[in-house]
Computed example of a mutant assay.
Amino acid sequence: MTIKKEEVVCLGIVLKTQSYKESDALVTVYFKDYGKMTLIARGVKKLKSKNAAACQSLTLSEFTFIPRNGLSTLIKASSVDFYRYLKEDIELEAYASYFMEFVLRNEEENQPDLDVFNHLKEALDALNHGYPPQLVYLLYNAYILKRCGVALQVDGCVRCLRQNRIAGLSLEDGGFVCLDCLSLRDKQLDKETLKAFRYINKICFKQIDQLKISQESIDQLIEIMDYYVDEMTGILFKTKKMIKSLEKL
């Protein structure tokens, strides 16, 4: 990232806020133009702070600051979208926290990527607009795999590349398996679920309205995608425990 000496104004999503000294806070933000950065928000814990609301975790805000390697000092901030609907629903907040945890743990400081910002914002917007959270979760998990360089093979058999007679999924090889290549180690699925699996791994959030998937297929796909993410990315998500506990209620 090119470091500038003058003030900049940039849109960003607050990933985490933690206490720093008596009245200050460290605010980790993923910026649209600057990537992941941590700002010192001085006096933000004071009752009269004008920046407090905009610096809360899970908030889309506009920040004024001077970009630096390491810690940058916040000048001012104003909230653009507080995602109040997500913060008032423990289940939705858990899914949103999962998306933010991925960005927080996977992305390097000062390495901007507009695709990362857009996918995070679109996932949060989809939750906030009332789309089924499990569907949004599936789409974001597909993005996680792509971002980690382990996108799944859904255009043909992962073993022989044939595009017809697809019968299941290989949990070891990461993708479709045709009837001829299907083994006892693979997971055989019905046509509806296989079709849904392909869509999940091919479309973007802007096409979410095209997804018409039964709850039975969604439940199967969540189990499968969770397995792929756990085994193929090496990331142990703390927020996943909360999601799993809520699913059992």
Rank of each mutant, 00 (worst) to 15 (best):
K4Y: 14
C10V: 14
L11R: 15
L11F: 12
V14P: 06
L15K: 02
Y20C: 10
V27G: 07
V29T: 03
F31M: 09
K32P: 06
K32Q: 14
L39T: 08
K45D: 10
K48I: 12
S57N: 03
E62D: 13
F63E: 00
L71C: 03
K76P: 00
V80W: 04
D81Q: 10
F82K: 14
F82M: 13
E88R: 13
D89W: 03
D89Q: 04
D89K: 02
E91L: 14
F99V: 01
E109R: 13
Q111V: 15
V116W: 06
F117S: 01
L120C: 09
A126R: 01
G130P: 01
Q134V: 07
V136W: 01
Y137V: 02
L138R: 00
I144N: 00
V150C: 06
G156E: 11
R159C: 10
C160K: 08
C160P: 01
L169Y: 11
S170P: 07
L171R: 08
G175K: 06
G175N: 07
V177C: 03
C178K: 03
R185N: 09
D186Y: 07
E192F: 00
I200R: 05
I203F: 07
D209N: 10
Q210L: 15
L211D: 05
L211T: 05
K212I: 15
E216Q: 09
S217R: 04
I222N: 01
I224A: 04
I224W: 03
M225Y: 05
D226R: 12
D226S: 07
Y228K: 01
D230V: 04
D230G: 00
M232F: 15
M232G: 02
L236N: 14
K241T: 12
